[in-house]
Design a protein around this nucleic acid. Structure first.
Lengths: 129, 129, 129, 129
DNA sequence: GTGGTCTAGACCACT
DNA sequence: GTGGTCTAGACCACC
């Protein structure tokens, strides 16, 4: 799993770590039961504070994506094969999707264009790219 | 144009204002050339400070969605009919969409489910709902 | 003399009027002694308040570019042939030029490029374009 | 980096801060990667409110001159060595330059005089004065 | 300790 | 009456 961070992004570091890990699981580069790097390992790789990595992992844990064992560290708990989504997740997700789709519409992307791009992204996950 | 804000949301108030206005334009409840409420008016309606509305409007201006005219206030500048999207916008938008789609995939939404929901949201805009 | 204004510019209307008139005199489309349109005339042409035009004319008067007669209206008082610049003007002008040139430098325009563009603009005035 | 502000200037304070920083970068007193004072620090130095400095920094960020890193504060992102200017910048810059050159012409500065002064200013940047 | 957000209120510029 | 600027002070998020 190869992660790249942008320290100048307006997205906070811990959010970026979380986003990259979610993407890696979507691409099936990491699967249910697979271990994640230790927080100290990841922090050293990126030259950031390990509390920041901790925060990202804690967020993933709250969202049900990973579980954290004192012994074995962080492990993927949730991937595409685990089962159908929870209703609460879908509600929240649709709220965020509505905003993103509204933006696309306002900026002149038409319905087919948007759907084609979404499909292409989803297929790229399935192909693990 | 009827806007509602959630003061307890983790999304900042000025972002919410921006999101609601973008959605209203996507639903064609406001079109190119239509005036928006004055910053102080909107602030009074929501019971918030006018600087907060100011920041939302400034953000919309930077993104090319509205223009601000010293005499007549804020006016919609960009809607679905204005023209094709700029390349820079599409690049940024796809980055954000990738994260949102990765999340859906990890939580067990399959490709068709995701696309169906996106299409439903886009159609709801076209129907002005 | 053909003037075009942009009501959405961040430059105020009266400043735009002033800028356009100064440019017209630089291009020698209006010369020392030539009359300018009446404030009410110009206001009607642009669909703006005549006080705004008044303010632009007053600014030009303060800067010594025009003089205003109760009877004959506004008349060009200063053009390229009138004589050498005042020291106070040059000082102020250099301050503003310094900022503009610093901006060009920071954004990667090199000295020759800047000078070539300035010369081209000055020549375009001499040619009345 | 030594900055001085004029509270009586007709140029707003946050614009002056922006102008002084751009000039400092043009003179290579600050280079790509160099840190700028924190917003609150600079505000304290000038005896002004930190929001005002914030606005100046935000403007510089929008214009691509600095980047703002959540941990290390503001850092110079753009200087003369970074690369060629963007077309959009040059267009806007030429518009502003046209007005300034027209003013010089109307006030009796001739072409060679203007170019000599511009060259002198540019050379003063190269010498870091 | 850094920047970001929000509030409150005053004053000014523009039209 | 509109937006723009500046001040003052509080609280939070991030690292």
């Amino acid at each position: 799993m190869q992660l790249t961070l942008d320290p100048d992004s307006e997205v906070s570091i811990y959010q970026q770590i979380r986003d990259r890990i979610v993407e890696a699981i979507a691409k099936r580069q990491a699967r249910e039961g697979d271990p994640l790097p230790s927080t100290r390992q990841l922090a050293a790789d990126f030259g950031i504070n390990f509390h920041t990595v901790n925060k990202a992992y804690d967020l993933l844990r709250q969202q049900g994506v990973i579980r954290i064992n004192r012994k074995s560290g962080a492990v993927v708990r949730r991937d595409a094969t685990t089962g159908p989504p929870e209703a609460a997740f879908v509600n929240d997700w649709e709220e965020r999707m509505r905003v993103l789709l509204a933006e696309a519409t306002v900026h002149g992307m038409d319905r087919q264009d948007v759907l084609r791009r979404c499909e292409a992204l989803l297929i790229s996950f399935e192909e693990g790219v």
